[in-house]
Design a protein around this nucleic acid. Sequence first.
DNA 1: CCCACGCTTTGCAACGATGCAGAGATGATG
DNA 2: CATCATCTCTGCATCGTTGCAAAGCGTGGG
Lengths: 340, 340
Amino acid sequence: MAGSTLRDVARRAGVSIRTVSNVVNGSVPVSDELRVRVQAALDELDYRPNLVARNLRRGRSGMIALVVPELDVPYFAELAREVITAARTHGYVVMLDQTDGDGERERELLGRESRATMFDGLLLSPLSISADELRRRTNRVPVVLLGEHIFNGSFHHVAIDNVAAARDATEHLIGLGRRRIAAIGDQPYSTGETAQLRTTGYRQALERAGLTVDEQLIVPTPRFHRHLGAEAMERLLARPEPPDAVFCYNDLLAIGAMHTLARAGVRVPDDIAVVGVDGIQEGRYSSPSLTTVAPDKAAIARTAVSTLLGVIDGSAPPPTEAKAPHRLLVRQSTAGTPVA
Amino acid sequence: MAGSTLRDVARRAGVSIRTVSNVVNGSVPVSDELRVRVQAALDELDYRPNLVARNLRRGRSGMIALVVPELDVPYFAELAREVITAARTHGYVVMLDQTDGDGERERELLGRESRATMFDGLLLSPLSISADELRRRTNRVPVVLLGEHIFNGSFHHVAIDNVAAARDATEHLIGLGRRRIAAIGDQPYSTGETAQLRTTGYRQALERAGLTVDEQLIVPTPRFHRHLGAEAMERLLARPEPPDAVFCYNDLLAIGAMHTLARAGVRVPDDIAVVGVDGIQEGRYSSPSLTTVAPDKAAIARTAVSTLLGVIDGSAPPPTEAKAPHRLLVRQSTAGTPVA
DNA sequence: CCCACGCTTTGCAACGATGCAGAGATGATG
DNA sequence: CATCATCTCTGCATCGTTGCAAAGCGTGGG
């Protein structure tokens, strides 16, 4: 029951432990006769290498951790899928953890008693923890950051160009002839860097088009969840002069907003056009389907994983700020007619 | 840089390795004087225990693996979240892997060279692999199965009562006065056990209500994805006598079906009522919002984790088939008016 | 016939931690 | 004052594997 070891197999085959190891690993040549005998013993005992021991000896675990705020947020689930796939092509497996955007949990993760030492490296998508703190806490563990939060030259970092993404989305709305364009999702405080970049892009687009920015149309939300999008939209509808389009900082907010619009009998996109960010699958089948700025998640994952592995084996250049591509997917929520 | 070990700390504090270990673990009493000195050394060197070494010695890794077909399927993402949370309350972390429903991948996972030995136990949600094969391959690793596929007394197992769930959904539609009720998602072949149980429940409900089962209204789908639900619905709409309600075997199928209905200008629920299974968050904000039979995912996760830990520490009873509760959440896609 | 060489096989040490048993010091007891 | 119990603290062995260096063995060349 307890699992057989190299020693058990060696005894049974009448050879040394080392020879069994050589057969298992195949790196060192073993004579046919012994190989056959050892292989038989391996099969009979159903030997499986103890990876914990192997890892200790080799100094590598073959595991990286991916830490996201919430796994049940589709963007992170889809990203996680890509990360797992990317890691697998390098022979790595991925441990997933979620912090609920709780700074405490994020801190714990890097603390004295954390399991971080079990992993060769960490992919972090931090929400609350500050750059300084992160730097102080990740002394030895290779880290690559995902998403926009925190960059100051201390860490490798992979994200889309959030300013450009927001600008693209807003310009698309402007191109449709919309003039009162609202924004849902600003986070004008220290840990809302991604949101702030998107606000910047939104403003740029309006200004470049010669439109004035109505501050009343920028509705902040503490998180990027459906119900917060729904509430924000309610507030916008309650205004004397509601918008004719909404740029939501992610798809969940957009879906929440559309939910409110549907209940209120407002037509999308005829009365109000809606665009989101993230390109989650959910948006392809919503009614109406959702126009969105989709980051190339596979590219993000591939870049993040290979950068991290580079840091792990020491071959990585100094911290880089990698930008992944994004593209606008036009669907019913702005175009009206089905496109894809 | 390389991370300091007990030996480094011991040398610095001028004590034995063992004493440092005692300070770190706190299990054995250490005099105040030494404790202070050791603690200082620990801090100065920023000592972090090497968990790989600790695990080797202790014979436990504190990790379990959760294997699901696809992480970006909302049901699995939401379940994974609950599993991670449940595991954390027991001091365990969770490694996530996905198989894409690929039997090969599932087999690989349990094979000779798998990483399964790195984990204290496995939570499996298998799609393709057969019971026999699973039994042959999981000799030593504690396993608990999630979902309906495979149960024959060899494994602990946690799921909802799929027959009852399907019956509840169908009876709800019957209760609304619907008579031509279609079913989307049957899988009449060996690995479609969950689907078949739902078909059974669907039939039971119709028969109990004295309705005849129209085999033409049972549309199989190879997987439970949105686009397959959309296609299945197209086929149903093309029939001379379309249904007046659809029971979809999961929420993604239902959302796909509603997508098709929206494009076709069919009103939900007026013309066709739709109900799904899974209770994913997406359904609360779809338009219309989706009536669904929601499994208690937190209960499933808690039961699965504590059962698995029981198997690991040997305190578990022989394999059990645990049933988690489910409940019907009535929303617009059947009720018409907003309920929650 | 001996030596050198190449190939296979082996033993030992080590990865970093913890279990165990015993050494040393201290205090309590008869 | 001797003996024993108590409390810290330490050294050694060990978890299962792999790196390293050397031993064993057969072969070909001189």
